[in-house]
Design a binder for these strands. Structure first.
Lengths: 194, 194
DNA sequence: AAACATATGATACAGTATGTCTCATCTAAG
DNA sequence: CTTAGATGAGACATACTGTATCATATGTTT
């Protein structure tokens, strides 16, 4: 059985990567229920026993896969722009990730996290890092005066991210840049009038 | 095999209901993957063959269960109140449903709809009725002048519902009345200043 | 009340999936 | 070269899946 944390053996790295790639494809094509030891073995070409050696429990495969993919790429943009523009840029990259593979992975995690605490922990790590950088950005805006000072930062973050999630996860609509622009304008715009 | 649409036979009604109750409990306790013919038969006390007679495919059980539960109770409140108060009342009942069983069922549907078109159709019916009554309410507000006329109704609906979904589905936090109140105040409040 | 139609229960059956084990072979590292 | 560890191939028992059969129970009709 290979060491789960620091894998130095290149043979182990190869098989592990091949199996994870297969699991990723299975998840993307057929959903979480398709990610089993048997099917991962079939798709990856690795022996079934080896899949069990790496992940004794079926949920471990998904958790490993999801933990590695749990990056929504909500990196803060360069600080030489107005806050509202930086917020827009941040949310655009976030929406782009949701439109791509991130949306499916997030969907899978939401469906599993309700009944699996480990998946929920991974989901929590995945969904707190992004909003945090957004909150920092909004806090900067409040200091600058470009965002209303009586606005709750946490709620404001929810109001910017919530509609984007809604559109992707429930409506299965692509989140366009125009949608993000309108959302930011409607949410942060009126503050300039106060 | 019983007629799926108009069941008049009381015997069929009994077994069908018993099996659906078992499926509901299994879904709530252990998630969609636990809703199988075998386990529904065990929990309900019905013979396994009978479960197959009612739903030949495993997904049909969930789809039947989800379609019946797909009511988010987004009923419009009495029209003798200001629009913003009616919006608040509407969203409060919506949040209450999400806090209860509706949240788990919706979570299950989101996780399945990504890879099952039939579930997505059911999800679509479930998530369009509610926003529609909200949109009608917001349109009334625009006519009255209590909501900014330059606001896109669809976007405004998303901005009110999105954060509520976000809080329940991703954060697993209870959506309190206070949260709804703050959300409505922040979203519709500034319009009064314009 | 009797006769008919249908749904259910119980069981059997083959096929497949799951989880564990063994051992020969292969790979990596000293 | 030698040794430790990982993999491949297969066996094995168990459980789950999907279908079929037939006796029994239930509902409907005359």
């Amino acid at each position: 059985m290979p060491d789960p944390e620091s894998i130095t053996n290149p043979q182990v790295q190869r098989t592990h990567r091949a199996m994870l790639d297969a699991a990723r494809r299975l998840l993307s094509d057929n959903g979480p229920s398709a990610v089993t030891h048997l099917r991962v073995a079939e798709v990856s070409g690795v022996a079934r026993a080896t899949v069990y050696r790496h992940w004794p429990d079926r949920a471990d495969i998904l958790l490993d896969l999801l933990s590695r993919s749990a990056d929504l790429h909500l990196t803060p943009p360069p600080p030489d722009l107005p806050v509202t523009d930086r917020v827009t840029a941040l949310l655009r990259t976030f929406a782009a990730t949701l439109n791509g593979d991130g949306g499916q992975i997030l969907t899978a995690m939401i469906g599993l996290a309700e009944w699996d605490d480990d998946v929920f922990s991974a989901l929590e790590r995945m969904t707190t890092r992004g909003p945090q950088s957004l909150r920092n950005l909004l806090a900067t805006g409040i200091e600058e005066g470009s965002v209303r000072s009586d606005t709750d930062v946490d709620l404001l973050s929810d109001r910017l991210i919530g509609p984007i999630y809604l559109r992707r996860l429930l409506y299965h609509d692509e989140v366009t840049d125009a949608y993000v622009d309108d959302l930011v304008a409607a949410t942060l715009g009126p503050s300039l009038l106060g």
